[in-house]
């Protein structure tokens, strides 16, 4: 009897530990809204001007820049990442495959500040002296951010392609197709929702990324809607990091930065949710 009571208590304790994530997420939502709700109004969401000392907090230029940076980086990451995933899943065997796979996994973990620093000292001067502008630009942001997004796209879309049953490949090869014909006609169509999920997830990662992108995009004092890829811009994350250190606690400026955080959180959560639903639907369909 005593033993059963002890077992029951242990189970409850473990359940409590498992609930920690719920508590933390709830607290995050409560505190972000408690600080940010006062700034979330029409002028904030649709204003064109962000000028803290003039009490103007409009986020449109920042949001537009965030999406330009995110989509561009995603584009580059797709162009390199999907072929790389096809290579890993369809064209390579074990020693090479596992070497590439583990370096890609390593790339996920490299501290983003180190990547940003690399961008600042290598990429920025390269652009400044060879292409023009100040170097700190949308283009630099695209490149650095695509390096950060690449591993996510590669690993999830590769998983999706490898999940296609081998009998499909065998059948197709037996009919005389080349590997590329098989990939094009069978593997990609069957893995397309997984590939799509990886792209959506990559977008969420790109938009939420902070330090690497901050160091190479210039962050002008007054954000504007960029006219060329050599323009300096400001994104949601970099605005928060740069301005939170001098925003007076309890001022409209601080509330607005938390409201930026809410917008960022909302956008990233929606993207994550979409990709998770796609993956779940895919698993359900398969089994």
């Amino acid at each position: 009897m005593k033993r059963q009571i002890r077992e029951a208590i242990i189970e409850k304790g473990l359940f409590l530990a498992a609930s920690a994530s719920i508590i933390i997420v709830m607290l995050i939502i409560i505190f972000m809204f408690a600080e940010g709700i006062r700034a979330l109004n029409f002028d904030f969401l649709f204003g064109m001007e962000w000028w803290p000392s003039g009490e103007k907090f409009g986020i449109i230029p920042t949001v537009v820049s965030t999406f330009i940076i995110g989509l561009g980086a995603l584009g580059i990451a797709i162009i390199i990442g999907i072929p790389c995933a096809i290579f890993l899943s369809e064209y390579s065997r074990d020693p090479i495959r596992s070497i590439i796979k583990s370096s890609v996994e390593m790339l996920v973990g490299i501290p983003s500040i180190v990547l940003g620093f690399f961008g600042l000292v290598v990429l920025v001067p390269l652009i400044r002296y060879n292409i023009g502008g100040l170097g700190e630009s949308i283009l630099a942001g695209w490149i650095i951010l695509s390096i950060m997004t690449l591993p996510h796209i590669i690993s999830i879309s590769e998983d999706a392609m490898r999940a296609v049953p081998n009998s499909f490949r065998e059948g197709s090869i037996a009919l005389g197709s080349t590997t590329w014909q098989t990939t094009k006609a069978l593997i990609i169509p069957n893995a397309k929702s997984g590939i799509f999920a990886s792209i959506v997830l990559g977008m969420g990662n790109a938009i939420g990324e902070t330090m690497a992108v901050l160091m190479v995009i210039g962050n002008p004092n007054i954000p504007w809607i960029p006219q060329s890829i050599l323009d300096q811009v400001r994104v949601l994350t970099s605005t928060i990091v740069i301005e939170i250190s001098y925003a007076i606690w309890g001022s409209m400026h601080q509330y607005s930065l938390f409201a930026l955080g809410i917008v960022l959180f909302a956008v990233v959560s929606v993207l994550n949710l979409i990709s998770r639903l796609i993956i779940k639907e895919e698993i359900r369909k398969r089994w």
């Binding site: 972000m32 939420g208 994350t237 928060i240 990091v241 939170i244 955080g261 960022l264 959180f265 990233v268």
Partner: peptide, 8 residues
């Protein structure tokens, strides 16, 4: 959750 939001 983006890390900057955790920071805030």
């Amino acid at each position: 959750v983006p890390s900057i939001v955790i920071g805030l």
